[in-house]
């Protein structure tokens, strides 16, 4: 499966707060991070929760605490499906 992003790419997460199940936590919505690795190809959790299996690339994306919370000097790394991400 071809991957849209590579390590080092800057990405922005979706701002959508969906009615359905998702694995994009609210605190990381609409934030800019950097891809730090690939996390394999897995069925998109949002669809799988509704019985639809559609695998797509998952990325490890690192965010600064400042970007997520407006303060702090640590980082938070999440696994994010490609659908959650757009170019920044």
């Amino acid at each position: 499966m071809s991957e849209r992003y590579r390590a080092g790419d800057r990405v922005r997460t979706s701002t959508v707060d969906p009615d359905h199940h998702t694995r994009l936590p609210g605190y990381a919505r609409g934030r800019v991070g950097v891809v730090v690795g690939d996390d394999g190809v897995h069925p998109l959790a949002d669809l799988r929760a509704r019985g639809v299996v559609r695998p797509q690339p998952v990325y490890l994306v690192r965010f600064t605490a400042r970007e997520l919370f407006g303060q702090g000097d640590h980082s938070v790394t999440l696994s994010l499906w490609e659908d959650y991400l757009s170019d920044e």
Binding site: D73, S75, V76, S79
Partner: peptide, 12 residues
Amino acid sequence: TEIRVWDANAET
């Protein structure tokens, strides 16, 4: 010391 938090929010 730099702190890295890892959120196991998906499959890993």
